[in-house]
Amino acid sequence: MGAQRAKVADVVVRTRVNGEWREAEVWPGASLLAFLREQLGLFGSKNACEQGECGSCSVWLDGALVCSCLVLAAQANDREVRTVEGLTDAGRLHPVQEAFVEAGAVQCGFCTPGFVVAVADLLEKDASPSPATVREALSGNICRCTGYAKILDAVNLAAARLLERT
């Protein structure tokens, strides 16, 4: 469909996403979140505020947890992005994902991919975080459904499971 683009030329962004190099043309103002969703068809990262307030769009950029709605797609050029879709291992749920299902930490689930990514990040850095550390680490993620109690249960369950494994 020949939609003539107004003025600004698209830029080509090439990013390694979940281990695979992907490339697409985007509007220079496009966020990494829009790039993942609209260009690459990775809809796991959610768009709930577009202002860095809710954490629904959390991904790793070169190993660092970021709100992908606040990062320009162009900033991810030549870099490594890991999303919720990259958490499963050969189709098997990550222990954090398992724990969310088991603990009842999922209701509508819109916040869930962001939480799962944030919790996996936390537990990669700190295998047995204190309750205060957990709260602090997840304070950038909003859940409107659960009141967070079962999310905390899931964190504890996942931490225990991961410790058992090592």
């Binding site: 809809f43 796991g44 919720v84 879709e85 999922v106 799962v116």
Partner: peptide, 9 residues
Amino acid sequence: DGVPKVRGE
């Protein structure tokens, strides 16, 4: 629907 939700699917 728990599993598809945690997978982002």
